[in-house]
Write a protein that binds this DNA or RNA. Structure first.
Length: 885
RNA sequence: GAUUCGUUAGCUCAGUUGGUUCAGAGCACUUGCUUGACAGGCAAGGGGUCGGUGGUUCAAGUCCACUACGAAUCACCA
């Protein structure tokens, strides 16, 4: 059957993915083999595939497929995460378009909408991963809000609460007025913005003097409860003990003194708004100042905003500027650059706000997690992230885990009518605990008249938990290790081996997973964390919707094949560096597929003649390629150990293209329409199979297709289940000798090109100097050489080149251009003499002779001798040119 | 502002404990190639003072100091 000259991936890829699925080949169950486990970084359940996912999942698939081929029981657990804020925002938006307000329909109906949305859009991204070839164990697909995971989250919450690690309290938190929820510190991104510094005049109470303060947020003056100066600032001494009036509303506030105030900055006079600034909050605590919250949850001003009540905070800023100016209380405005926090999810400016939230105490939990990374029990790749990790862990702050959202795990805290609360996994249990709690402090005889509570008397906390509070359990919860801590799966698959993720969630997710791993399994949750770069375009810009510089991965796969895209991605992806993605790389991937395809077309067309003897050249080539394969095997093993996947791929890329196709196949290729001997034929098919094995983790589809072509396979057989050869010793001597052959053939080709000699014209080769004739059959075939003769003097009509110290000459007869030859040789002579001089300089240096190690000196002496030999050889050649003039 | 990392060919990157002809790879580029695997190809080439300055050393892309530029993380003064 004739194969097309161009490889068409579309049909092949879906065929084999179906085949793998049908035979359940991705599925893993515990057995006696060594496990190899990866848990997927769960993408947003309603998300779609982007280039970052391609990078991340290609790497995971390479690792998992390789592990499988190394005989391990490989298990890659897929799943998605509920992405509380992002998903809730989408649903709110959708409902808004239908004219429905979240608050009108209530919690239950809203959650129903959310589930509906999740079922409709959820899992699209997992289907897209299948197109990429991801060999996940789909039977194990998890969702952070499915029953097992939800139960795990609640269990952990209750456990940590009972250990006293979770507490509830009023703190200054990051408020997102758009999503209307609290955020953790990690979810705030500080951006530099051009803003203004307003100089405002506060009248001193009872005097006709003013204190001038500088602020970037004039709208917050309505929440001022003090003005602070530095006690060392003599120029402000006159303000001590006085009161000033907040502009426009003339509310008197005290002057306080604290060294926190920078005398040099602004006016050296700071307005204090404890409810809306983290630093002011600390001052407020210290001096027991009143705290006036002037904002509603949506960022508009409340009744404390006086005449601005109901207006948005940014509107108020421009309005109040005008009003202050009109009142003569605005001294000046300066341009000013400062950093403002924005919500990672909604990009809304964060409002620091005092609020009652749930927190997890981190400092003790962080200790084993820090130690594990410090001691390389968990390795970060590349290791530069260790520093970053250490710094965060050593300065870790308590984690605000409550979110004012509905889509997520509802906090299992239940409030009693008379105050206080209990934490319990079900309302029934909560009722029991609540009753026990209120009875504890009263006389057991019932004389207090307290009646037991009814279920409706308890009110469950309205808030839900941060999404990361469920994903931090992921490596445990996907194996149900929280609910069933001693089950077969968790005991077998945990700890997992490698985690592949982006460095921007090192703290959000990776660090917290490590923490929960130690808390709940007393063991690291993975051994290695491979941190990928961020995918950027070829100009180094982040891929974004607004720039429109992100290609659609699905279209890319349609265009270049999944194998081509996988390879394109890996070509650009050394570990730890940002990935500058260029579609041209996918083209390179596709071209490589085509190369593989055509190599197969070539060998598959050969007819075998069992009576034919194996040519000498073929026998040598087989012996050489066997060694060459062994070398690559060892190299790839080493590169995989170091997680240098791009280099490992390049290694096998060059093996296939340069060594196998350009050298091996060209040597053994029979003349047109001639048959091949059976020994060589068998060897080339064996090699091709080995190459498929090595290439498979990178390009699973084309390799499976060709492997199935190599011979008749049984149903259910697959390349992906074959075992990779273990690296063994290989013949280095033949590799070195073959490199010399290549150099000779290359030299012949260069002369042919220079002299315009067609490849078809056979040439006679003469050799002066050391030469191993056992490889001559290769030189004859690859250089189209008619005869090889060892001579003592170079012929006058020959063009020559040097390989090491041996001179190879092609007899050209009348075609020789003596003048040109002489010029070439003189250039070479000059170079060699210069080189010799540099070596002599070293050897004549007494310091070098006395201080350098013997081996180094010996090497220099060898170089000197070689250079001298070469110089002599060139001089001899020049002489022979002269004598034949 | 602090800390960390980086700067090597036109581009993206390797380069281990300082020492072999060590200055490398892929892509891009140049030249030649029409029958027989593949032009999505074959063959052969050109291309870098290793960011800069100084130091240590017999010897520096590699170690040290300073400096310029870039990136990341953290912290921020209103």
């Amino acid at each position: 059957m004739e194969l097309p000259s161009k490889y068409n991936p579309a049909e092949v890829e879906s065929k084999w993915y179906q085949y793998w699925l049908q035979h359940n080949m991705f599925h893993s169950t515990p057995d006696e083999r060594e496990p190899y486990t990866i848990v997927i970084p769960p993408p947003n359940v309603t998300g779609v595939l982007h280039m970052g996912h391609i990078l991340n999942n290609t790497i995971q698939d390479i690792l998992i497929r390789r592990a499988r081929m190394l005989g391990k029981n490989a298990c890659w657990v897929p799943g998605t995460d509920h992405a509380s804020i992002a998903t809730e925002a989408k649903i709110v938006e959708k409902l808004k378009n239908e004219g429905i307000k979240k608050t009108d329909i209530g919690r239950e109906a809203f959650i129903e909408h959310a589930w509906e949305w999740t079922h409709k859009h959820g899992g699209i991204i997992l289907e897209q991963l299948k197109k990429l070839g991801a060999s996940c164990d789909w039977d194990r697909t998890c969702f952070t809000m499915d029953d097992v995971r939800s139960e795990s989250v609640l269990k952990v919450f209750i456990d940590l609460f009972e250990k006293g690690l979770i507490y509830r309290g009023v703190r200054m938190i990051n408020w997102d007025p758009k999503a209307q929820t609290a955020l953790s510190d990690e979810e705030v991104i500080y951006k530099e913005v051009q803003s203004k510094l307003y100089y405002l005049r506060y009248k001193v109470q009872g005097e006709d003097r003013y204190a001038t303060i500088a602020t970037t947020r004039p709208e917050t003056i309505l929440g001022d409860t003090a003005v602070c100066i530095n006690p060392k600032d003599e120029s402000k001494a006159w303000l001590r003990g006085k009161k000033v009036l907040v502009p426009l509303i003339d509310r008197p506030v005290p002057i306080i003194e604290d060294e926190y105030v920078d005398i040099e900055f602004g006016t050296g006079c700071l307005k204090v708004t404890p409810a809306h600034d983290v630093n002011d909050y600390m001052l407020g605590e210290k001096y027991r100042l009143e705290s006036i919250d002037i904002f509603n949850n949506d960022g508009t001003l409340n009744k404390h905003g006086a005449m601005y009540a109901g207006m948005d905070r940014f509107e108020v800023r421009s309005k109040i500027e005008k009003d202050l100016k009109a009142a003569g209380l605005l001294e000046k405005i300066e341009d000013y650059t400062n950093k403002v926090g924005y919500s990672e999810r909604t990009d809304e400016a964060i409002e620091p706000k005092l609020s009652m939230q749930w927190f997890l105490k981190m400092s003790d939990l962080a200790k084993p997690a820090l130690e594990a990374v410090e001691k390389d029990e968990i390795k970060l790749i590349p290791p530069k992230y260790k520093n970053t990790y250490r710094y965060w862990m050593e300065n870790v702050k308590d984690w605000c885990i409550s979110r004012q959202l509905w889509w997520g795990h509802r906090i299992p805290a239940y409030y009693l009518p008379e105050g206080g609360f209990v934490v319990a996994s079900t309302p029934e249990e909560a009722l029991e605990k609540a009753n026990a709690l209120r009875m504890k402090n009263v006389c057991p005889c019932g004389c207090s008249g307290l009646k037991p509570l009814k279920p409706e008397d308890l009110r469950q906390d309205e808030d839900c938990l941060d999404t990361w509070f469920s994903s931090w359990l992921w490596p445990i919860s996907v194996f149900d290790g929280i609910n069933e801590p001693d089950n077969k799966d968790i005991n077998y698959y945990y700890p997992t081996n490698d985690l592949v993720t982006a460095p921007d969630i090192l703290f959000f997710w990776v660090a917290r997973m490590i923490i929960s791993g130690f808390e709940y399994r007393k063991e690291a949750c993975f051994k290695n964390v491979y941190l990928t770069g961020i995918v950027r375009d070829k100009l180094g810009r982040k891929m974004s919707k607004s720039l429109g510089n992100s290609p659609d991965p699905i279209e890319l796969m349609d265009k270049y094949g999944a194998d081509g895209v996988r390879m394109g991605m890996m070509l650009a992806a050394p570990a730890g560096n940002d990935v500058l993605f260029d579609e041209a790389l996918c083209e390179q991937g596709r071209n490589f597929n085509n190369k593989i395809w055509n190599a197969y077309r070539l060998i598959s067309g050969w007819k075998v003649d069992p009576k034919l003897d194996q040519p000498k050249a073929s026998a040598l080539a087989v012996e050489w390629f066997e060694a060459r394969l062994g070398k690559t095997l060892a190299e790839m093993d080493d590169l995989f150990d170091k997680y240098r996947l791009s280099e490992a791929m390049m290694c096998v890329y060059k093996l296939f293209w340069d060594e196998f196709s350009s050298w091996f196949l060209e040597i053994i290729k029979p003349a047109y329409q001639q048959p091949i001997d059976s020994i060589t034929h068998k060897a080339v098919f064996g090699f091709f199979e080995q190459l498929c094995l090595l290439l498979h983790p990178f390009m699973p589809f084309i390799t499976e297709e060709l492997w199935q072509h190599l011979e008749q396979r049984e149903p259910g057989e697959s390349l992906m289940l074959q075992q990779q050869r273990k690296p063994t010793a290989y013949n280095q001597v033949i590799l070195d000798k073959f490199e010399l052959v290549k150099a000779v053939v290359s030299g012949i080709r260069t002369i042919r090109l220079e002299k315009n000699l067609p490849v078809k014209t056979a040439l006679a080769l003469e050799i002066q100097g050391e030469h191993d004739a056992s490889f001559d059959s290769l030189i004859v075939k690859m250089g189209n050489i008619s005869s090889i003769t060892q001579v003592s003097a170079k012929a006058s009509d020959a063009a020559s080149f040097l390989v090491n110290t041996t001179e190879y000459s092609l007899l050209l007869g009348a075609l020789i251009d003596t003048e040109e030859e002489r010029k070439k040789m003189n250039n070479e002579l000059q170079y060699q003499e210069g080189f010799l001089q540099s070596i002599l300089k070293k050897l004549n240096n007494p310091n070098f002779i006395s201080r350098a190690p013997e081996a180094v000196i010996e090497a220099e002496r060898k170089k000197m001798a070689d250079a001298k030999n070469k110089i002599q050889a060139i001089k001899d050649s020049l002489d022979s040119l002269e004598s034949n003039k």
